[in-house]
Design a protein around this nucleic acid. Structure first.
Lengths: 188, 188
DNA sequence: TTAAATATTGAACATGTGTTCATTAAAATA
DNA sequence: TATTTTAATGAACACATGTTCAATATTTAA
């Protein structure tokens, strides 16, 4: 099943559109594979040729979103990231902008009936950014494992995002930036 | 459906035992409701009288486990918790002992195809413990929301647990305790 | 112990899941 | 363009899901 084959491209596109259409009507958990295929006018067997679950289809979108997250840090802004408490500037923190930008998706990612997969995708993304930064500035003592330290910091940030999500993202991006900056300032 | 009715008690017990039996054979995701009912010798319709999904059944176990977590902190040990970097002593941190004790369950909780529900149950448990401790010692500046701060710290600890889980809990409890203590010591 | 209350059962139904396989249609390539 | 390659289809299968309802069995309470 060559990814370049026009038939494959057309089929995936139809499935993508169908999922988007259905997501605007109801939550992912209430959408069935049979339904997606009916809307996409694609044979159900064909779906299984490309994906195992409807979650795999959503995952393809999410990967694009994770690329946006990475791109945020290719800019001169890279920051949260620079966990140096003395230099941090709330305005240079990009991650909350990213979440806000795609909050429609993150509402799905954080909903309680969805599998942990997406959570791990986000975790891995932030983990990688932080690890890169921590390694570059190697400001970690010998006794601390960079892996554990990165996991700690990455998930801590997601903790803020969870709290934010649970209030349906009512707080502003700048509130989140300030909270994080203040928290990091405590241990100074 | 009175929870005291002997028939209800017997039915739930049968379903619990069936789930445990099946979990020793295969992962939760591969277990079907129909299968649980066959093993439990309970009518499938009866299952739906008490639960909506197989996940609800697992949730009942997990609630007991969360009680163990809370009990850990009713002892004079309460600690992680006491996020005062100057006083922290790795040996007083109980949470990793708890995870180790129930690692069979946490392997399920953290597996990627399981719904986020259990993650949130753990998060809420740790969140509550930390919030209580932070409030008691109110060592937080005015600019920081206790909610955000608690969410940050709670999820940071879960970050360590995720990293631990991903290596199938090979590291010792004391390694985890030392890592956390060292990380907290950084911001001192 | 008897009567009333109610949890469980079994059967049935429409729909979804995941898989298979021969047939058809569309795309790649020569 | 003609030929080869291969993705998509439709039909069928066994099984799971979620729901309904009258009949039955167990428990509770009088």
């Amino acid at each position: 099943m060559s990814a370049n084959d026009l038939r494959v491209v057309k089929t995936k596109q139809a499935l993508h559109n169908a999922l988007l259409t259905l997501l605007s009507e109801k939550p992912l958990e209430n959408i069935t594979i049979a339904e997606i295929c009916r809307v996409a006018k694609v044979n159900r067997g064909t779906f299984y040729l490309h994906y195992e679950q409807k979650e795999g289809l959503f995952e393809e979108y999410f990967q694009e979103i994770m690329e946006d997250l990475n791109n945020s840090y290719e800019e001169p802004y890279r920051a949260v990231t620079t966990l140096d408490k003395n230099q941090i500037d709330p305005n240079t923190i990009r991650i909350f902008h990213h979440i806000e930008r795609f909050k429609m998706f993150y509402r799905i990612v954080f909903s309680k009936n969805v599998p942990l997969t997406y959570y791990y995708m986000l975790f891995d993304g932030i983990f990688a950014l932080l690890k890169r930064d921590i390694t570059l500035h190697n400001k970690v003592h010998d006794e601390i494992s960079i892996e554990y330290y990165s996991a700690y910091q990455a998930n801590a940030i997601i903790g803020l995002i969870i709290q934010w999500y649970r209030q349906d993202f009512v707080d502003s991006v700048s509130t989140l930036n300030k909270q994080l900056a203040a928290i990091l300032r405590i241990g100074k």
